[in-house]
Every structure is written in structure tokens, then in C-alpha cells.
Amino acid sequence: MHVDLITIYLLAIGTLLASCGMTLWERRTHPRRKRELGTLAAGYATLAVGCATVPIRHDLPGVTGSALSNLVIVTGYLLILRGVAVMNGRQYRALSVGILLGLALAWVIAGTRREVPMWNYVSAIPIAAACGMASRELLRSDGAKRAQAKDIAAVVSGGHALFYAARACILPWVATSFGPGMLSAIAKFTVYEGVLYSVILPMTLLRLVRDEAHGELLKESRTDYLTGLGNRRWFFEEGARIVRINEASRPVALLALDLDNFKTINDRYGHDAGDEVLKSFARIANDVLGPEAMFARIGGEEFAAVLPDHDRVRAKAMGEAVAARFAQTISHGAGGVEIRATVSIGLAQSGAEAATLTDLLAAADRALYSAKSLGGNRVELAQSAPPPPMALDGVACGS
């Protein structure tokens, strides 16, 4: 079936406008990315306007029509670049203005005598640059922020950049070698490729925003609202994984931490003051334990930390550092009242007596109760569970 160039242009315009509409709709449901989605929608709409002007560009005198059409299209690509860049905290505002001014100057210099090579070859250079920079921005995110949708978007934008770079650099040779008919075929292929770009890129960017929103919701479901630490659910999911990975080769220690006399603090100073004490402890312990520790709030004033590659000696030193630093800290309640608090800590290490996270936590809790009974503000080590009594001819030894 033969499809003429005008029909393909109309298809490209339709897909760009549809992408603009879907992006604006998503903008309503993702306020965190409202700015980026609005910029991307503006980019798609601007590209649609630019494509709509291409078939009628010769209706204006001189190179005015071609120049305006090219400038509008490049503006659309630069808006898409900015929408992607803002996700990483960048904008490219000055560079975008420079590209547009340079392109406008090039059209003025080209004039009517060089309109055809300017339109066919030179005008592709800023498009290739904008798409290449957008691809680079999509690939710049660190590993924690990378996602499949982002990689696909980077490939699509990068492929579009390579296509236009080839149009600028290779097409002149192709036209010379194969004649003007090849230019018409490549023009049609350009629009086909543009349709694919206008469909795949917006869809993958929308998928990226949705995945990001889902990730934020998942993170919130695993985060304690008061301290910003992981919550009980996160602790048991991630802690079990860490213990399972390290059980055969490396030691894993677990600290069970509980603030001393916390009910008294709440009763005397109020729950707001108690919350400040909890937040202060979370900050201190998190700072002392460091990024390697998996530290979480698992109850009211109860915390727990999984320490990979920590034996009893090293883990005890960490626990004592937490207890000492917190005991020296002054928290402030309502009216600036000064509050001092301490913490009791129980320590258990993985091994034959505690092979799972549940076993480790139970052993550390027993040590924690021992620390409480000894007055608190201390670290106690879990004792190995006593072996079961041996029996001889049905009578227990020692009877």
C-alpha cells in the first residue's frame, strides 16, 4: 500500500499531539514531576506545530518559511532536552538559546541560494545535538536511579541523534552518488523514523515517571514516618536477605536497641518531646553505625541494626559507641527543656545458635533484657543457649 508523504506528516503530528495530551494527563497525577512533564508536553506540542509547517513552508517568501519551520522543530527538541535534564537538576537554558540564535544566524547567512543544503543537511545538526544530550542525561543517573524505561528512552533518543547526525554528514555524499531521487526516499524515511520516535520516547518517559512514583510509594511503605529509618517490614525483609547471603561465609551481628525509661519521658515531658528524643537517637545511631549497617525502627522506642561482616568484638564496640554518644546528647522538649536519655543494647552474632534473622533478634532481645536488668545504658552479649540435658537409660544426668 502506497502512503504519501503528507499522510505520514499527519500521522507524525497526530502522534505528537496524542503524546502531548497523555503527558499532560499524567502531569495531573504526578505533582512531584509536574514541571518536567509540563515541559515535555510543551516539547511534543511544539514539534507537532513544526511538523505541521513543513509542507507549507514554501508559501512564505524566501527562506522565511523553511527557517521558521526548522527553528520551531529544534525548539521542540530543546524543550524535550530540558524536560529530561530537569529530572537530573539541570536545564541547558543558556545552551538552548545559543543553539537557536546560531541556527537563526545560519539561515540568514544561507539565504535563498543555500536553502536546499541548509534544509537537508545543516538543519539536522542541532537536532542531533539536542537528542544526543537528552540521551546523555538519561544515562547520567547513578545505579540506584537507573531503570529499564530510562535505558530504552536513552537508546531511542540516542538513535534519533545518530540518524540526524548521519543525515547531516552522510546524506550529501548519498545525494551526490545516487541522485535527487534518494533525497525523496530519505525524506520519507525521516518522517517514518520521526513517527516511531514520537511514540516510543513519550511512552518510555511516562513509564519512567510511573516507575519512579511506584518506587516512592514502595519506599514510603518501608520507611518509618518519624525517624526516616526503615520500618519493621523493611527490617525483616532486608535483614533476612542479608543473613541468608552471609550465613555461610561471613559473620553477621545484630543489635537490639531500646531507650531506657522512655514511658517516663513521655509522661513527664509529653509525646512531642518523646518524639524529639526518638529522632535524636535515630540520627546519632545512624551516624555512628554508618552506611553499612541496616538500621531500622521496629517498634515504639525499639530499634534494631544488622551489621554485616561484624563479629562480637567489633559489633560490641559499635554498640558501646552508640550508647556513649547518646548518653552525652541533650534533646530539647517544649519550651527548650533539656532531656537526657540512655539506651540499652543487646548483641547477638550469627552462628549455630542463631542461624536466621528471627533467631538473631530473639537472642539479642534476651541480651537486651539482661542489659535493662543491670541498670541500662550498656551493651550485653547474648549467651549461647544451654544444650538440652542428656539422658542415660531414660534417667536425666545429675538426677
Rank of each mutant, 00 (worst) to 15 (best):
L16A: 09
L360W: 03
E216W: 05
I284E: 02
R114D: 12
V108N: 04
D272Q: 11
D142G: 13
A315W: 03
E301Q: 07
V195P: 01
N261V: 12
R33S: 10
E193P: 00
E338I: 06
A367S: 11
S331D: 03
R241T: 11
A48N: 00
T223V: 12
I170N: 01
A175Y: 02
S123A: 15
L37F: 01
T358G: 10
R140L: 08
L206H: 00
S96Y: 02
V72R: 01
I56M: 09
H58Y: 10
T329Q: 14
Y369I: 15
G270W: 02
L139W: 10
R93A: 15
A327L: 09
G159E: 02
R250A: 15
L71G: 00
A296E: 02
S123G: 04
A110M: 09
R90D: 02
G143S: 13
D393G: 08
A296R: 05
K372W: 06
G111M: 10
F178I: 14
G290Y: 07
V322M: 07
L37I: 05
C51G: 00
E302F: 07
E353C: 13
A240H: 06
W234L: 14
G21A: 15
Y369C: 11
A166Q: 05
V3A: 05
A362H: 14
V191K: 09
I330V: 15
C397R: 13
A185E: 14
L100F: 00
N377M: 07
L40S: 00
N231E: 06
N377C: 10
V322I: 10
T204C: 09
T112E: 15
E115S: 09
